[in-house]
Design a protein around this nucleic acid. Structure first.
Lengths: 102, 102
DNA sequence: TTTATATATTGACAAATATCTATATGATGT
DNA sequence: ACATCATATAGATATTTGTCAATATATAAA
């Protein structure tokens, strides 16, 4: 597993504003100006967060004229789910280890 | 959804070292000194990361004499999975919205 | 071609985070 | 009681992150 890339993916969910954006996108595709209206941040800050969400693969953007339409990427969420599953599936070496206690 | 708490949960996965720790814990419970041996960080730094992982609910600790034993918390991962699912389930208002395009 | 509108980029700054060294706490063994 | 070992905490510092104002880019409308 590439921990550097994985960390970037999870960073999408590490900010209150980004989580709010994801909640708004539950209703389906929304354009940036709509999202902006429902948040207490400036337009450049929103743009910054949308970039992080897109780079993480969690959101995808679609340009239509001057508008940017954003929506949740199911594939992105699926990747993250796989990642979580990875931590619950034991590796080959499981339970071979002894511990430091006497 | 309490976005503040959710952000804290996800922060557990936002650091390369913490992801490495989680990988080590796939094999089952490990004590802090063992984890430390396999990483290139100092003991206080490890302690710092273990606190973040535990506070996030992703890892649980068990004290035995002077040793701390850490293991992955299935319940913690389950909470995160539920959170991801939340973003894919549409809310009631889904598709009522029209968008800003003319 | 000028004007207006939506979004992105830049640069500055404050807050949060990761890391270290030094030290404290707490448990075990002599 | 003292020394030793495992872990935690405190304090300092460098890096990263979130935010804004100002500006640039791109598209559409007049």
């Amino acid at each position: 597993m590439d921990n550097k890339k994985t960390a970037v993916m999870f960073k999408a969910f590490c900010d209150e504003n980004r989580l709010h954006i994801l909640e708004l996108l539950r209703d389906g595709e929304r354009c940036a100006c709509e999202i902006l209206e429902e948040m207490k941040i400036t337009q450049p800050t929103l743009s910054h967060h949308m970039k992080i969400l897109c780079d993480a693969g969690v959101v995808s953007g679609r340009k239509e004229g001057k508008w940017m339409h954003y929506s949740i990427s199911e594939e992105g969420l699926e990747k993250i789910r796989n990642c979580l599953d990875y931590f619950t599936k034991h590796s080959d070496r499981a339970s071979e280890k002894s511990c430091c206690k006497k």
